[in-house]
Amino acid sequence: MTVPAELDRRFRESAVAEGLVDVGYDLADSPIGLLLVAATDQGVCRVAFDPEPERELATLARAFGTRVLRTPKPVEVVRRQLHEYFEGRRRAFELDLDLRATPAFQQLVLHELARVRYGEVDTYGGLAAKIGKPRAARAVGGALNRNPVPIVLPCHRIVGASGSLVGYGGGLERKRALLELEGAAI
């Protein structure tokens, strides 16, 4: 005998309603594959391309607390905005983010990244110069590679100096698909 679905749903809702959840997460369908989206009470803390939650959940637990629970409510907003983005109806995300677990240098990079607009691209070196560290292109690349909230913070808009796509945490095919969706000149 398994837990009845209705009872299971009720428990998960009550857990959120009573403020007992550190991280709520769910899976979201998208044209570039299934996404795992997660949020704390402060905001969205993770968008992951690998929808196999096993490793992801342990990482979230270490960063934000062990009370990690699959429940749709906390991620409702980010799911909706991602859906609108993929339908071409949204060009900017209006979301609170929780970047507590992100190191200071990376936060600086991500903050600058957030200014790169829909459909535009910049280079690793360009971003490095904008944060006042023109020789830190590689470090910027590393920081982007560990972007906890890809798509929402658009690391796909950063390309190599030659204009080639170079690298992407979610794989180059996804990067190309996102830039094509935005109509970027690549």
Partner: peptide, 19 residues
């Protein structure tokens, strides 16, 4: 052993506790 994410714990024991 590290405490597992609650979701794992709940998945592992939910059904037997219900029974």
């Amino acid at each position: 052993m590290a405490v597992p994410p609650f979701e794992r714990f709940y998945e592992a024991h939910g059904a037997e506790i219900f029974r």
